[in-house]
């Protein structure tokens, strides 16, 4: 095709958008609706991802080691005499009654060795050792003034009541159960305190939202393509006369096709720009409304280019492919005819 023809047809494509403006507005309207929904779904996915990441970063598991204090005060405290009501009720045992073989961690060195083993577990990002002294200090700092006396009484009776422990940060919540099992099974670990249910819920919500958004984006993408094809088809039937004249004066199929493709692409670009503006406006309103309760919304500027890129890609692809497909189908069917309208 000659360069003059390409220039002319490009101009025609632009002109057609204006000349057939009612049809253009209809196509743009539907395309914008699809794109805004796609954009919303994307932004929701992004925000959920970001929130999950924040939550995952705070995903800390406390581990208590199997030392002397865990035997006395811990969940699995040993009762030397089952009939001893005090022991079974309070879980406390006389310190002197505990043989060294009853527990696995006898000093800080052994506790640190357990920490090293914990670090080797997959999905464990970091292990922070907390000695029994540090634990007691932190406990005293965090409890209320009146309750601090309880620690002092225990201290007076059996010395420091706290066990050695570790604060473990997990990489992700996806393999939460397996990781907790591995930690629990590590030699020297007495008990693990975690928010497993919350982790599972968060992970579940994230997967569900991602899946829903994936389907929304996919389905709307296909809908956009069908809508553009359909609009071009209607436009084509409206412009049968024009096409028939083109064929009568010796236009090739590509000459007939090009203005429609340019028109489709242009509708896509216009829709993309309008959608970007609308999403920006909606997102800003949503951000202002939710700022008091939900302050972790991703700034729009961070995602603006990505969104525009996606919109343009969808618009141009749907416009070009939709119109190319429909016009080719039409030309194949009625391409050499121009008399019978």
């Amino acid at each position: 095709m000659k360069i003059q023809s390409v220039k002319y047809l490009t101009r025609e494509g632009f002109r057609n958008v204006w000349v057939n403006r009612l049809m253009s507005i209809a196509s743009i309207g539907v395309l914008v609706a699809c794109m805004v929904l796609i954009g919303m779904a994307l932004l929701i996915t992004k925000n959920v991802d970001r929130t999950m990441q924040t939550l995952e970063q705070q995903n800390v598991v406390m581990v208590y080691f199997n030392d002397k204090n865990s035997v006395i005060y811990g969940e699995n405290a040993v009762a030397p005499n089952a009939s001893d009501a005090t022991a079974s009720d309070g879980g406390a045992t006389e310190t002197n009654d505990i043989p060294e073989s009853a527990y696995l961690v006898h000093n800080e060195q052994e506790a640190l060795a357990v920490c090293e083993n914990l670090k080797k577990i997959a999905n464990v990002t970091s292990v922070e050792f907390i000695s029994s002294d540090e634990a007691l200090k932190r406990a005293k700092e965090t409890v209320l003034e009146g309750q601090a006396a309880a620690f002092e009484i225990l201290e007076e009776e059996n010395g420091n009541p706290m066990s050695h422990g570790a604060k473990i940060t997990l990489q992700s919540m996806e393999n939460f159960d397996a990781t907790i099992s591995a930690i629990s099974a590590t030699s020297g670990v007495d008990s693990v305190v975690s928010h497993g249910d919350l982790a599972k819920k968060i992970s579940g919500i994230k997967s569900a939202i991602n899946l829903i958004c994936f389907w929304i984006i996919g389905i709307l993408g296909i809908i956009s393509l069908v809508i553009v094809s359909n609009t071009i088809r209607v436009t084509m039937y409206n412009r049968k006369l024009e096409i028939s004249i083109m064929k009568a004066v010796g236009a090739t199929d590509s000459f007939v096709r090009l203005p429609f493709i340019i028109e489709g692409m242009l509708l896509g670009v216009i829709s993309a720009l309008i959608s970007e503006g609308l999403i920006y406006f909606c997102y800003r309103v949503a951000g202002e409304t939710m700022s008091e309760t939900f302050n972790t919304l991703i700034p729009f500027s961070e995602e603006a280019l990505l969104l525009l890129g996606i919109f343009l890609a969808i618009g141009i692809f749907a416009g070009a492919v939709g119109s190319a497909f429909m016009i080719s189908k039409y030309l194949k069917k009625e391409g050499s005819e121009f008399k019978a309208l």
Binding site: M1, K2, Q4, S5, Y8, V19, L241, E242, S244, I245, M246, A248, V249, G250, A251, F255, K339
Partner: peptide, 26 residues
């Protein structure tokens, strides 16, 4: 080709209707 029903493109003016055939041949 001359048609009974003229076959002029209504959205184009007279000049463009005639020029159209020349654009087709580049």
């Amino acid at each position: 080709i001359v048609f009974q029903d003229f076959r002029l493109i209504p959205t184009m003016d007279v000049f463009d209707n005639v020029a159209f055939a020349m654009h087709v041949v580049g």
